[in-house]
Design a binder for these strands. Structure first.
Lengths: 144, 144
DNA sequence: TAGGGTTGAATAGCAGGCTATGCAAGCGCA
DNA sequence: TGCGCTTGCATAGCCTGCTATTCAACCCTA
């Protein structure tokens, strides 16, 4: 049986993620946000004042990736960095008022994108898909 | 109900695709390949001599993205470009011997990555996941 | 046939992913 | 106390995505 991109989980995952990212980018662009910035803000809206290392751990990206994303967010006035109280190497990340103000519309945009993407599936199928993706993510995180 | 990254289809799709890409990258790096080059080769192994526009259509990426990927593949000795027989704007993409020789090991690497990622799922669950992803891709492609 | 719209491709510039390095600060133990 | 390992972060350089722009070639129609 020949390898087919239409039945390859990896290929489909890549294609699906690109379409999700494009759709989200379009919806949050009016807020001055890009997708990775939104992901980072999700964590900071839940808990402000995290260090870069904490964000790296929660979002499962490399430290250098997060450093670059945070630099763009600071440039765009979404975050401030303040000295850590006890560890002079670390800098804590705090939201600006601007970042706090766009929480509701940004989350609404992400929910709209998810809804549009899943519109062809029943509620049960949507839950199945999410459950299966979580399992696959867990498997790949485990085996490095 | 708060928005949670652990139940957001878009977030999970992004995370899963990154893990797939990292795993594939590791497995095909010894062949001198990167993931997007592998995707492009999949089309060219099936049909040699395509134009850039044909590849763009089949892989659903932007023309500029494909132009850059092809430039790197040419630099790495995987493809040659020859003049189109009747259209002087177009250049046809042909595989080099080097690219033909790595077909089998590259496909084996991709199959190994898929198998590793889906190892925690039953055969039925694997088929469900692939079917659901295809539906989501189809929905998002339709609505632009 | 001349002009104008369309199409194939390259290029610039940016976001976001990665590895590899480098450095400063913290920590731990002889 | 001091040396060395670890940890937090920044930077450089690469690949892969995107939009926007440009240019040449093609094609159609007035």
């Amino acid at each position: 049986m020949p390898f087919s991109k239409d039945t390859s989980a990896g290929y489909l995952a890549n294609h699906m993620a690109r379409l999700f990212a494009n759709g989200l980018a379009r919806r949050i662009a009016p807020l001055g946000l890009a997708p990775a910035q939104f992901m980072t803000l999700l964590e900071l809206w839940a808990e402000d004042g995290l260090t870069q290392a904490a964000l790296v751990e929660r979002l499962d990206v490399e430290q250098a990736t997060m450093a670059n994303t945070l630099a763009r967010m600071q440039r765009d006035g979404l975050i401030e960095r303040r000295a850590h109280e006890t560890d002079r190497r670390a800098r804590c990340i705090f939201l600006t008022d601007k970042a706090r103000r766009i929480e509701a519309p940004a989350i609404a945009a992400a929910e709209a994108q998810n809804a549009a993407a899943l519109a062809g599936l029943s509620a049960e199928e949507q839950a199945d898909l999410i459950g299966l993706m979580r399992q696959v993510v867990a498997t790949m995180r485990r085996e490095g």
